[in-house]
Simulated scan of single mutants.
Amino acid sequence: MPTTITGTAAGVPFTALPPADNGPAPLIVTWHMLDAPRTDAAFAAALPMHGLPAWRVHLGMPMCGARMVDGSTDAIVELFTKDPVMAYLYPFVRQASEEFPAALASLREQFPVGDGPIGVLGGSLGGAVALRVLAESETPIFAGAVVNAAIKMRSVVELFPGDYPYDAESEKAVDSLDFVAKADVLAERGPLLVVNGELDHPALRADAADLVGAIGDKAELRSIPGLAHALADEPGLEPAPQQPHARAVDEVLTEWFGRHLPVR
């Protein structure tokens, strides 16, 4: 089996997969789902992109993996039960994206990835992190990809039971995470692949199509037959054998990033 490296980068836990020769290569950074697979290690097992001549570093989301409270997801459940927007969705995306620059600087010190453009990938809520990095950071990006992503946070909120009681603060928070509205900015960044499951939530599929349509030629949409939202079986905390639908996503991602890797 290929080498797996674990560690932390500016306090952010990661699971890294090196290229075959363990040598200098471009860097791809990912953020995992909060559905299964819901840790960096489990996401690396679901979407390893083996054979890609790049370092793939899977960062842990807040309160996940090595940062779980008391080794469980109970604290996260408590947060989204309390307030799915202001205690869970918005602060998780904000923290993960805001801690990224320091984590990236640390990864550049730990691995032979150079200082050139990177690739970014996110799944579900991690997709919102990848899109925020694309839209708001100054980090050079050679290509991005998202899978079953939280593209418009209002659509994600509607998946929770009941009617969410928006106020001015929460309206501002969800509007800041509407990436269809940021399509013009995203179009100026690297090419973007939007992958969704044929059986994912209809609203998320509609958002994916809207985003690609709004970006235009710089974006591609790929639908995976038979795929729902999750990429692994529950509980999705530990590395597990790759499921067939995840393998199909993995193949699409490997081809996409391979096509756009910088020439070294």
Score class of each variant (00 low, 15 high):
M1W: 10
A9L: 08
V12G: 04
P13V: 00
F14Y: 15
T15Q: 04
P18S: 13
P26V: 03
I28F: 04
H32W: 04
H32A: 04
R38K: 13
A41V: 05
P48R: 01
P48F: 01
M49A: 12
L52Q: 09
L52V: 12
V57R: 00
L59Q: 00
G60L: 06
M61L: 15
M63A: 14
G71K: 04
D74H: 12
V85E: 12
A96Y: 06
E98Q: 13
S106I: 09
F111D: 03
V113Q: 00
V120G: 01
A128V: 09
A128I: 09
A130P: 03
L131F: 03
A150T: 13
V157D: 07
V157W: 02
G162N: 02
Y166C: 09
Y166V: 13
L177C: 08
A187E: 03
A187G: 01
V194L: 01
L204R: 00
L204C: 05
R205Y: 05
A208K: 02
A214C: 11
L221M: 12
S223F: 06
A230K: 08
A232K: 01
P239N: 06
Q243L: 15
H245P: 01
A248P: 00
E251R: 09
V252K: 00
T254M: 01
W256K: 02
P262D: 08
